[in-house]
Nucleic acid binder design. Sequence first.
DNA 1: CAAGCTATCAAATATTCTATTGAATAACGA
DNA 2: TCGTTATTCAATAGAATATTTGATAGCTTG
Lengths: 218, 218
Amino acid sequence: MAPSDAKQVLFEAIALMGKAFASPRRLELLDLLAQAPRGVEEIAGASGQSTANTSQHLQALHAAGIVTRRREGTRVIYALAGDEALRLWLALRDASAARLAEVERAAHDYLGSDVETIGGEDLVERLASGEVVLIDVRPSREFAAGHIEGARSIPLAELERRLAELPTDREIVAYCRGPFCAYAHEAVRRLGDSGRKARRLEDGWPEWRLAHPSPQQT
Amino acid sequence: MAPSDAKQVLFEAIALMGKAFASPRRLELLDLLAQAPRGVEEIAGASGQSTANTSQHLQALHAAGIVTRRREGTRVIYALAGDEALRLWLALRDASAARLAEVERAAHDYLGSDVETIGGEDLVERLASGEVVLIDVRPSREFAAGHIEGARSIPLAELERRLAELPTDREIVAYCRGPFCAYAHEAVRRLGDSGRKARRLEDGWPEWRLAHPSPQQT
DNA sequence: CAAGCTATCAAATATTCTATTGAATAACGA
DNA sequence: TCGTTATTCAATAGAATATTTGATAGCTTG
């Protein structure tokens, strides 16, 4: 093989991974998988596309080595392939947000009015001293797959009904999937309407996990 | 705008950046720009594609915010847009190498037989103590745009002719564009043939620069 | 071992990307 | 102002990718 051919092959191989990140649909699948592993139909439902199409996209991601696949009885469970894949996805997302004004605009349209946020270090301190209550407003399925230590699961859909469980004399911090996830924004707004002081955690669960590795993780 | 529409827009915006990394040709341009800023024709020549095509790809990269563009007289100089873009490219490349066996195989075909390497920290020590001579075997244009402190520029093409400049009683370390660049591999092989002890630095210039920020850089 | 799930495959169509060509534009120097 | 050089634009043909539909394969349960 001539050197220039070999070089082409090399870049083509790397582009395989790039292509995996080139489709909005696939990115949506990745975003879902960053929260919790799932079966194909579940993913298809959550992202609003046909099962067959979802399956194809998932296979593309698998071929690029970004997701893993395991059979569980009659279902096939897909999951993100390690922290490296997660890091890559987060890096792409953040780089987009930093560089493309459009992302910020689209995010703003989607998320609605800004709400007050709290940083990770602040949260750790206040959580330790009992000053705040931390709630995870993602679907309970995702809470079960992993959550910040000390958080209580109150999915957004149940928030109104379970408002009484939350104190009125302490600050409440809500988090969800990440900076572009609308759940925590909405939760903070509703808690504010109920007369409580509430803020949104800057990080979502995937970012938190990477930044605060638990002891039993490698 | 309905929420789901807004969400689509958001992922589409992020995919814009993903698409930038989806074409082997564009990756090759990125790889060149990671070494030094250049004009369009120069890039086209170095990557062996037509000028018009190169210009189009460069515009795609520009639209994604990965490269900057500035007019310099009659030429337009493209450059990588900040460390973030470089970091993203390196992360993608490394993730590919880690996950896709094909990349490794393609790299091996391209690079030829393995040569001994030396790590960054080792190099710093030995360089300080004068035990080794460090040479940069990239084209002089790229050396001029930035290089490791203490390195001497000996482009691969001139190596045979300038062999006499290099000592035979000290180890020689060669570096080039990065782990997938063949220059340093080839240089180490030739130096070995001339009876000298030589090794290849694991990092290339872009990796080194990110890992060893110079004081005047932000 | 048949029925019912879940996931994948295969083929056809629609859409989007890429490369090429030739013309148009912008800056420079005579 | 008029060539010259460097870059970009516009149109098009060809290649690759996405989506849908309907058929198939693997596993589990009765």
